[in-house]
Design a protein around this nucleic acid. Sequence first.
DNA 1: GTCAAACGCTTTTTT
DNA 2: AGCGTTTGAC
Length: 728
Amino acid sequence: MDALLDRLNSQQQLAVAAPAGPTLVLAGPGSGKTRVLTYRIAYLISVFKVPAHNILAVTFTNKAAKQMGERMTKLIGPNSEGIWLGTFHAICGRILRREADLLPVTKNFVIFDTDDQQALMKEILRDNNLDEKLYKPASILAAISNAKNDLILPEAFPVQNFRDEQTKRLYALYQQRLVKNNAMDFDDMLVYTNQLFESYPVVRDTYGHKFEHILVDEFQDTNYSQYAILRNLARVHKNLYVVGDEDQSIYRWRGADYRNIERFKKDFKDAEVILLEQNYRSTQTILDSAVAVIDQNSNRTRKKLFTQAQTGEKIRLIVAEDDREEAQLVVSDIRDGIRARQNPSDFAIMYRTNAQSRLLEEAFRRECISYRLVGAQRFYGRKEVRDMIAFFRLIYNPLDEISLKRVINLPPRGIGDKTLQALAELAEKSGLSLGESLLDLNRPDNQVMLEVGRGGERLSRFAHMLSGWRKTAQDNSLSVLFDRIVSDTDYETYIQDKSEEGQDRWENVLELRAVVMEYETRGLQEFLEAMALVADQDTLPETLDAPTMLTLHAAKGLEFERVYIIGLDEMLLPHSRSCDDEEDLAEERRLLYVGITRAKKKLTLTRAQRRRSPYGTYEDTIASRFIKDLPSSLLKQDIYAQPRRNNFARENEYSRWESPSWLRNTTIPQDKPAKTKFKSGMQVRHSTYGRGVVKNSKLEYGDETVEVYFEGHGLKALIASMAKLDIL
DNA sequence: GTCAAACGCTTTTTT
DNA sequence: AGCGTTTGAC
């Protein structure tokens, strides 16, 4: 199996073949981190002869887990079967279901996502007569989440003022309500796992013995409670192998604590530290600019990033007049690239906030280019999809009141607040949950129905449906259940109003049915677990050959030939919410660093001089402070010309582009070409338009603008440094 | 209980 | 500006 090591450089070999024991791999971007991790596991199995089921590998995203699994299978085939591979949440979910007897919830607990949490918190606030405006559910939940990430239980919640006291109380109530719903939130999965280990050393040591080797990817983005889980699990064998890069820590806001690296060094004194510095991804220019950006952060160990690749092209900086034009410029450039035979999937556009994708989407549609949009809640956030999932959840776990309330009157069947109130009173009296007393109504001998009044009949009709579904769920496949819910509720008629959106929504339902089919044999539990833990970005069709749009956060771990990072404006990158805290600012910088280092060949940074503010009006922007950190020797400042004239002349709103008046000088200094390279009458060739004749050329705004007449395309104004024009 | 109009607020990043 | 939520009318 030494052939395994042949394909690695010496640093990587050192990491892959490291002796057992605590190991810390500090890996710069593009240094083959994932490769090392995958090979390490293969090495453990084939050289150390560790059985796969004694290995635990934790990744940051489901996608990374999937990817690693695939690579592993390629590397060592079926020997890799049985390995515990997944995100912290997936792994914890697995442990918690197995050990559910020791938990305050039952084995078929459900996982509350952000929306469910909000709904629950709103109920609690209402029950306690607290003003939602004063106590915003989101901010209360954020405080609770922070506490959980540090393993602070309600009793230990630190109180300094009245508001803290309220938060503490709400935290306690919230936990009670979750248990009543037989539910837990994302953070609870980690907290419960820790509690399990702390309260039952037997359980802790069972898993501790089981996992001879534990490997962790993206270690810099673990939070304290995740670290505590690792420490608990590694007590026995101490074979904790973590891989990370402090410069790529971008989840502080979610509780990620890069101090875990220090904790690790302290808790595992004899840990071996291995550095991976050679970069296999990017050109030296890209690396240099990345280093220039990240070196401005203090409190970090400086690393060199080197590559054997070429210097490569300079970084382009494009300044558009407004955000709409920014989007159009980027998309036009990609269009030109695709026409010039570039692979569509080589392109990626990255941005700070999801909202920025909208203008890009519009631009792509105008150009009739298909695209991949990562995340942004496109599918699983849709109401109709969530509705259907709520039906499933209620069937699986009737204690889930949030889901019950969501679907009990859906489609409207005359069960409003009053009827629900009556049901709640009934439940109160019998000491049952809403769902249980609802199902009780269905029992033929049930008399209490009368007490509920006129709504009683509607309620029991729904109860009848629900118990029918529960029976169906027991001995039928998921799609059968799905179809029954749809037909029993006449869901199609409900959402398929004649409108076009109705059609869209129905198509979403059908798409969800296709997802359900994938879990056909695996059952309800696995389906719901996946729905809760698998995010949109994990479901991207990898096969689609199209440019990708994604947030800088979502870009971590990926790489593309050509990367565009848009919106390099103050208040956006760095984001306004991060501007008054030193640590937050450092994280924004790391975010840009992550983005830059995704690029293999070519990097383009853009910004807009005016941008739509959240309020709808246009506002002037200020160039991002990070631009200053890029040495001008690495930059090629570009001002776009427009072959768009012909394309858009028909559309009135674009007519302003016919004049070059939007071209602006910007603040970035640049060496201007002394004289024009092109002269009137020259024969030239362009990658897209073919042969043409130069009509005119002049120096303008720091760059050379050439007017060329192309047969079949007409007169075009091109920027010499941009358009690849060859003189014939 | 349902529907429509008016209001008010919003945007950071995600398992 | 656009959306979701609340309010008010039927």
